[in-house]
Write a protein that binds this DNA or RNA. Structure first.
Lengths: 156, 156
DNA sequence: TTAATACCGAGTAATTTAATAGGGATTAAA
DNA sequence: TTTAATCCCTATTAAATTACTCGGTATTAA
């Protein structure tokens, strides 16, 4: 019941991108360096984010990535589902209709449990917008007296 | 972000035990057969449940397992945490104080996300009692015209 | 004494994770 | 027009985890 490094690193990368966005695209190598993640691995993660329409890429020299939408319109749920797949606790047809229906769905009791867990997780992450995290990040960094230039690496 | 078979099988086993409990202990082999789970594997799962004080065992011939408490006092959260470990989405000191504190806790933004997810999962599973599932199970089985003797195996 | 049961620890195949590695395509700038 | 910076894509791999199996020991009712 743990997120993988895909979700953890990927969310941090999107926050980094959102915090450091300006007029120009942000190179992946910069995000990777600030976040202490290998460029090669981060490439795989950002590819998922691009496929999900969360970021756009600009190819060539001076290229990089930008948010595909305002950060107010991107939820943490959108980001985590892009990186991790669905956030359901089990693969169950009742939660995810692209699963093959369970032969004992009519007498299944645990499906109510899975539905409650699933709904609570998705409601929680859909209720946090990227803009909230950007604001919090700026607040916390200002409080710690850390400038954008020398911000230290995150671990979590 | 998925539960393992430990949580899925184990929860089904506890529900089975609760539904089929009477004056006598229920042998693991019976639960295993009804639920279509190997006895050897189920042994490992029920050992965790016993260690957590959710079930008690009676050794020797005609022995088996019984609930250690009334089903009204056992939450799904108790059961799943016994089987899966904590239900937090990440190993983070803010959620689980036996983790070593994160060196960048002061500037960590994602911890707010993990806390919200963690709380929502734990609140959800702690709000469902085993007795609720037993009642639901009996209702569903009666509706399907299935007697206790020939109940079919569950898959989920 | 026997059979039914719980208890225990070691081993293992398959899968997933968390990367690494290396090359190709595109484009701004020198 | 070349170069360097950048995104893009696929293959490989070591380590960890999962989901078991296997074989034995201990206990106790009948």
């Amino acid at each position: 019941m743990k997120l993988t490094t895909r979700g953890r690193y990927g969310l941090r990368a999107v926050i980094d991108l959102a915090v450091n966005n300006g007029d120009e695209a942000v190179a992946l190598s910069q995000i990777a360096e600030r976040q202490g993640i290998s460029v090669n691995y981060l490439e795989q993660l950002i590819a998922k984010l691009k496929k999900a329409g969360i970021v756009d890429s600009i190819r060539g020299a001076q290229g990089g990535y930008v948010l595909a939408m305002p950060s107010e319109e991107i939820s943490v749920g959108d980001i985590l589902r892009a990186l991790e797949g669905d956030l359901n606790p089990v693969d169950c047809h009742e939660l995810n209709s692209n699963e093959t229906p369970c032969s004992n769905s009519d007498i299944c009791v645990t499906k109510y449990v899975w539905k409650r867990i699933s709904d609570s997780i998705n409601d929680a992450v859909d209720g946090i917008m990227l803009s909230d995290l950007v604001a919090e990040s700026k607040r916390v960094q200002a409080e710690a007296g850390i400038t954008q230039a020398n911000q230290s690496k995150q671990i979590c």
